[in-house]
Design a protein around this nucleic acid. Structure first.
Lengths: 254, 254
DNA sequence: CGATATTTTGACCCGGCTCAACCCAAGTGG
DNA sequence: CCACTTGGGTTGAGCCGGGTCAAAATATCG
């Protein structure tokens, strides 16, 4: 219930690290910034850690801060009054959390793994946003990317079968894992599933049981292998893509 | 198949109208522009009309133009290789079509009613975008709005029942119709359904038959009345919202 | 007016949900 | 060290909402 982005947590700030050797330096909002512009953000940034399952913001709250995911995975979710829940976005390192120019949060943000955020005070960030076009441009670029990803996900939610949903999700994780090592996905790739079955179900518009059953189905079909419940081995990436219903490398981003 | 935004249609341009008395002057990308900035866009804009069902762009095409919907409704859709189709956005007057900084279209755009677009040559528009922060700001604002709408729609696609989907869609159209007359939705509101049953099914992640059946169900429950197949009467807006599963006025935008 | 598209309705089926049991690994406390 | 929780994950049995297939009813249009 108590949101940490909401109010007065300056006391809990982590110490500064230099932006220059930040792991997300070339992918986050600050990408286009040169040294002196970067100093503007560096001056107002602070880090904050969250435990798995911890709520970062709740829908409807007024947030005082916004910023980037540095480590870990954050789920953005919406909930109906009777408890049905849909995750509308998974935020990985370098993704930006919080909506500029509109302080009220439209969705819950929950840490699904241990998370570290690089946060900025909202009014100060928005002033910098007004004054430096490079930041505005990058933010527009990232938002357009999010929009494309959201629309890809709409196709998945509205039209794909449970089996295709799981395969699509795994193929995206595989691509992401390969990209982190600066290469294309290869056969034999092994990567971690950062989500519980429940978080996967929320993201894919399914139930836990269906997620589990479809994973079993993919396993028995030889499309994937489970190292353990949280580690996946993809013997044949093309086969996975084909089950996912993507032609070649069909557009998904996040 | 042949896309009209793609190439060399300068010959088919409609005549200019003044931006000053444009019907979408205060809501489109140009909102924040003063007279002299507006002249920049005015100089390069042209109008183009489309018939219902006509394709405006196809996914994968490189588009030479982008711009605003002036009249009518455009559906943005994605299609799987076996033909399953999901509409990922409905664009109404003042909405912006086309992705700056990335010429390849990610989805089909199809006119669902007679449509008039106000178009700009891509390279020239992007130059203006670089040079005038007001445009960039407005575009960011609109894109963030689209992202919120897309995520709301993900909740609908992933978690709502067919009945709730239809009711939600109608409540949004009701809100939009009321907003056009600058007032809140009132009981007794009558408005047009601009979409065929098929287009609704594509948007809601359903089949035509289910759409038709659920409309009948809502009618028999007294939540809506059909003036004719394309005109809806809402005797009790609160009842409609309640069926839609929205608390009070739950956040939906487009 | 026939011709063609759109919408509605009916009968049936099946994929994914519900409910329930069970498994397993990791605490936790006596 | 073992008994007991606890939280994730898997599996099974049965059901039902929405899909499929088919046909009738109702626009829309030359």
């Amino acid at each position: 219930m108590s949101s940490v982005l909401k109010l007065g947590l300056r006391n809990h700030r982590e110490q500064h690290d230099s932006c220059c050797d930040c792991t997300i330096r070339n992918r986050a909002v600050c990408t286009y910034y040169g040294p002196q512009e970067l100093a503007l953000l560096e001056a107002i940034k602070f880090y904050k850690k969250f435990q798995p399952g911890q709520e970062i913001v709740a829908a409807g709250e007024v947030t005082e801060f916004l910023g980037s995911v540095v480590d870990g995975v954050v789920a953005l979710s919406k909930t109906l009054s009777d408890g049905r829940r849909q995750t509308v976005g998974l935020m990985f390192p370098s993704d930006f959390i919080g909506r500029p120019m509109q302080p009220m949060a439209h969705y819950d943000a929950i840490a699904v793994t241990p998370v570290r955020l690089c946060l900025f005070d909202r009014p100060r960030f928005e002033r910098i946003l007004r004054d430096t076009p490079a930041l505005a441009k990058r933010l527009l670029e990232m938002t357009l990317g999010e929009l494309d990803a959201a629309r890809d996900w709409m196709l998945l939610l509205g039209r794909k079968t449970a089996n295709e949903k799981i395969a699509t999700f795994f193929s995206i994780l595989a691509r992401r894992a390969a990209a982190l090592e600066h290469k294309a996905p290869t056969d034999g790739l092994v990567f971690e599933l950062p989500l519980t079955r429940e978080a996967m179900a929320d993201y894919l518009g399914l139930t836990i049981e269906t997620v589990s059953r479809q994973i079993t189905t993919l396993r028995k079909a030889g499309v994937i292998e489970l190292v353990d419940a949280r580690h996946l081995h993809v013997p044949n990436y093309a086969a996975l893509l084909s089950v996912a219903g993507e032609d070649a490398d069909g557009g998904m981003i996040a």
